[in-house]
Design a protein around this nucleic acid. Sequence first.
DNA 1: TAGATTGTTAATCGATTAACAATC
DNA 2: TAGATTGTTAATCGATTAACAATC
Lengths: 212, 212
Amino acid sequence: MAILDGNLEKVSEFTIRRLSNYFRILSELEKRGVVTVSSASLAELGAITSAQVRKDLSYFGSFGTRGLGYKVVELKEAIVAILGLDRRWTLALFGAGFLGHALFFHDGFREDGFHFIHVFDVDDAKVGTKWRDVAITHQRHAAESLRREPVDIGVIATPPSAARDVVDLVVRGGVKGVLNFAPTQVQVPEGVWLRNVNLAVALESLSFYLSQ
Amino acid sequence: MAILDGNLEKVSEFTIRRLSNYFRILSELEKRGVVTVSSASLAELGAITSAQVRKDLSYFGSFGTRGLGYKVVELKEAIVAILGLDRRWTLALFGAGFLGHALFFHDGFREDGFHFIHVFDVDDAKVGTKWRDVAITHQRHAAESLRREPVDIGVIATPPSAARDVVDLVVRGGVKGVLNFAPTQVQVPEGVWLRNVNLAVALESLSFYLSQ
DNA sequence: TAGATTGTTAATCGATTAACAATC
DNA sequence: TAGATTGTTAATCGATTAACAATC
């Protein structure tokens, strides 16, 4: 299957986020035993338009059959391949607080192939304790740990004041992706991908509309 | 100050999310004792353009002084008022799992004026225990609790399979906003605002770009 | 074949950016 | 006054949607 017809440049983050959504919808349909699905019903389930669905998929190839629609399992597997979920990804977590804890134990990540193999914190009370089979390590040993066992992605769940230093640390450790939950602007060098997730933004958006 | 010149209709969710970001940047500048800031430096701190900053603010009024820029505290307070952060908001949490725990104890929310006054779960082992001064209540008593003490916003941190029912429950309880962390499509009636936050999306976006 | 639905092109819509007059 | 920077309009860019030929 020819994924990516050379026009990857034109694929926007919006499309990627929707693919991620199609993946979840298709997984659900598969679980329910649904065999085929049209762009129209996929669109309805995702609260978008059928043109959007077809356009999104068209960046990566032709996955459907005219007159019939898409085979659920086939399309799901195509999207899994596109999103890179057909392999194992290793993660390092920085910050073993409440949020770090929730991320580490979030089953969805493991099911998607994302595995935390390091957890770092600066709190000596936490260092040495174990989360599943991962021992919490003091952040001062992070560089060393990352040299011994490198990871693909660094996940930042520290207080905002620490985020910048931790990002530098994990980038020097060789990660190619950073997922930042700290509500502060951080910088990564060329060639490293950064995504920011800010839990307050959605809540503040709600309070804006509720105030009107 | 004339916030909202009647063109609120034209304000996009993109603008609101950036306001939320300006708010954090301005808070940081205030803490550092910075008195005035230009759209250019605000833009640099937020990794966008100065035209974007001025355009975003222009939907709500004129907050700056030509030739000088914006007073940090004044602009911050204007944005606080726009986002509705100048009042107390009450929240009900559904799902006392890892994620619910992280959300409940997340200091940033309380600092912004968002207060969880109810926590519901279906696990009898959790029911009766307390988080700070909030007793975890069985979900079957949620309707009753919400009647006694209504809230502004329902926060859904249940497994996806439970999300739909819980949303119906909380909407019948009179909330005007729903913040859904469950990775499943939910529906709310006209007049209720919904925001979805999916922790997997950002990670899957990273794996997509890292795969290329 | 007739009906259904894809894949894609062209049209539309909306968000971002550039430019500059207004003005401190 | 001269320099700086806002607020706003017009131009550009990019994302979404409509439409339809291709085709199962």
